[in-house]
Amino acid sequence: MTAPLLEIEDLAVRFDTEDGPVEAVDGLGLRLAPGEILGLVGESGSGKSVTAYAVLGLVRPPGRVLRGSIRFEGRDLLALPEAELRRVRGAGIGMVWQSPRTALNPVLTVGHQIARLLRHHRGLPPRAARERAVEMLRLVGIPEPERRARQYAHQLSGGMCQRVMIAMALATQPRLLLADEPTTGLDVLVAARIMELLKDLGRRTGAAILLITHDLGTVAESCDRVAVMHAGQLVETAPVRTLFRDPVHPYTRALVAAIPRVDREVALEPIPGAVPSLLHAPPGCRYAARCALATGRCRQERPALLPIAPDHQVACFAAEPVA
């Protein structure tokens, strides 16, 4: 196995709210190989986005990283000074946010915004940066890139804005792209094309992608591997085919059964209960209260994430770990 590009170990992020501390991410471990697309899925409140913020070093008070390490190309991002981190963030890691329109600067043309990134992070002279910006817009499939480069965010459609965001994220040729719900709120046709574009660009530039989403369909169609989060903890991780063919953790199975789908007739089965409040997180398995298979042990003791097959790990007492 190649050396991982991103390796997260035992990450814990806590938010000190008015009502008490909330451990939004608790003991998370992830590995991402170069060129790999990893899907991070779960309901809202599962800690997916907080994980992305932690990788970018953007957890701000009242939140803080409690413990753990985030190694990117061998360097622990949590130990880096702010200036160093900013360089990594700009050049090594790209970010595609959920709402592209608000993430773009409304008073600068989109071409200008991309060019500015190129000047700062790659040291291109202004003229070359401008030309490269137009090229980036062409790369992400925007028609008439010269004209579009001179426009502002409000003159572009939602799909276009998302393409611009992707162009910005890729402008500095990052080795890792974090995409937080990149297609949520977009129409299906536009969403499908954005996902095609991301996959294609990943293949071409060799960038790894951490795709954060609640949409299992998107995961199935785009990812190589999947990590399922529930209430701040990782409950299962497996290659995409394994995960959809033999999901082991009861939560993973419940997630798949809870969505209507266009490809076959299914009986909808909602996941019982809700993500437990992390204010007073239960001592045992955080899924126990929602789980039909839960036993007394599940409520007392927290199951560790253990391998049950090569590259397939599950945090559940009901799963059979390999010796």
């Binding site: 046709l189 369909g217 199935a220 169609e221 785009s222 085919r241 959809f244 266009v262």
Partner: peptide, 8 residues
């Protein structure tokens, strides 16, 4: 264009 939760 609707993504389907079935990689195969």
């Amino acid at each position: 264009a609707v993504p389907v939760p079935d990689p195969e």
